Amino acid sequence: MNADSLILPGLSNIADDYDGILCDVWGVIHNGVRVNPGATEALSRFRDKGGRVVLITNAPRPNPPIYEQLESLGFPRHAFDSIVTSGDVTFALLHAHEGDTVVHIGPDRDYSLYEGTGLNVVSDASEAPDGGLIVCTGLFDDTSETPEDYHARFEGLIARDFSMVCANPDLVVERGDSLIWCAGALARDYAAMGGKVQILGKPYKPIYDQALGELEKLSGKPADKSRVLAIGDGLPTDIRGAHTQGLDVLFITAGIHGADFGETEAPEEELVKKRLADEGLMARAAMPRLAW
């Protein structure tokens, strides 16, 4: 391996430079169907040497269901310390609207987001007053719908001056071998059509503040950003967010951008460097999949 190589064989090459890791979940640890065994080993080995690992995900629900999902997929609890979700950040924001009626756009599984908020949650906007709030966690059915299916609905909501809170900034995620539309794509279109949108989660600051706060609680001392590594596969979310927050980045290239860099398991370094430069981003290192 060239000393100046961006692409590394494993986390062990740089692990000693860091005390803490903020690691993306979907696209790095699993693809919605299968766990990446290399990620299990890498994060477990990092913790074995005294490092702390906080998982940071744009999942639109508070973190308890994410612990359950990881367990069901076979990702072991000893590979990480705690989880911070976009839903955790959204939950905190929704408390300011206690007693209000909000319109939910997303699957039923995301209703745990509202537990304890004191909100009246409806899925039919006719039951909510004009000028209200939409909370978007995804598509109602991401197996069959596309963002275009929502445009007529959005025209009516915008005409009634609804604002949207987007609880998951991701545009797409991998589910097995397919790409699935996420809430970020709906928020993008709502804004493009003239709607007011507030987007939470990566790449925005509040989720990083909360995740760094977790590292501080775990270590008992202030987090030194120069000793924290962010790991992710999404350029507009994981990589941009970490870069904007002044964190070193390990870019996992075989995730949602896997087709952009040549052979998925052997990415072309120059293509990776060019894409990062074109996006105005930097990475400490890259590898196709997280491994030790």
Score class of each variant (00 low, 15 high):
2 N>L: 13
8 L>A: 08
13 N>D: 15
13 N>H: 15
21 I>C: 03
21 I>K: 01
22 L>E: 02
25 V>F: 07
27 G>R: 01
33 V>R: 11
34 R>T: 15
37 P>G: 10
39 A>T: 04
40 T>C: 09
42 A>E: 04
45 R>H: 13
45 R>C: 14
49 K>E: 14
52 R>P: 01
54 V>S: 02
56 I>N: 06
59 A>L: 10
64 P>Q: 08
70 L>R: 00
73 L>R: 06
75 F>L: 02
80 F>E: 00
82 S>C: 13
87 G>M: 03
88 D>C: 06
91 F>V: 05
93 L>W: 14
93 L>Y: 12
96 A>M: 15
96 A>D: 14
99 G>V: 07
104 H>C: 03
107 P>N: 09
108 D>Q: 15
111 Y>E: 15
112 S>A: 14
114 Y>I: 05
115 E>K: 13
119 L>S: 00
121 V>G: 01
123 S>D: 14
125 A>E: 14
128 A>D: 04
131 G>M: 06
131 G>H: 04
132 G>I: 08
132 G>N: 03
132 G>E: 02
132 G>Y: 03
134 I>T: 03
137 T>W: 00
139 L>G: 05
145 E>H: 07
147 P>R: 04
152 A>Y: 12
153 R>T: 10
154 F>A: 06
157 L>P: 00
157 L>T: 03
160 R>S: 10
161 D>H: 15
164 M>R: 04
164 M>I: 05
166 C>R: 00
167 A>H: 02
171 L>Q: 12
171 L>V: 13
173 V>N: 07
174 E>V: 09
180 I>T: 12
184 G>H: 01
184 G>R: 00
186 L>C: 06
187 A>H: 01
187 A>I: 03
188 R>E: 14
190 Y>I: 00
192 A>R: 15
198 Q>E: 15
200 L>S: 03
202 K>C: 08
204 Y>W: 14
210 Q>N: 11
214 E>L: 04
217 K>W: 08
220 G>I: 06
226 S>N: 12
226 S>W: 09
235 L>A: 04
236 P>G: 07
236 P>D: 13
238 D>F: 04
239 I>K: 00
239 I>Y: 02
240 R>Q: 15
243 H>F: 11
249 V>C: 09
250 L>V: 01
253 T>S: 11
254 A>W: 01
255 G>V: 02
255 G>N: 03
259 A>M: 13
263 E>N: 12
264 T>P: 07
265 E>H: 13
265 E>F: 15
266 A>Y: 11
274 K>Y: 11
279 E>W: 07
280 G>R: 08
283 A>Q: 03
287 M>G: 08
287 M>V: 09
289 R>N: 09
290 L>Q: 01
292 W>R: 10
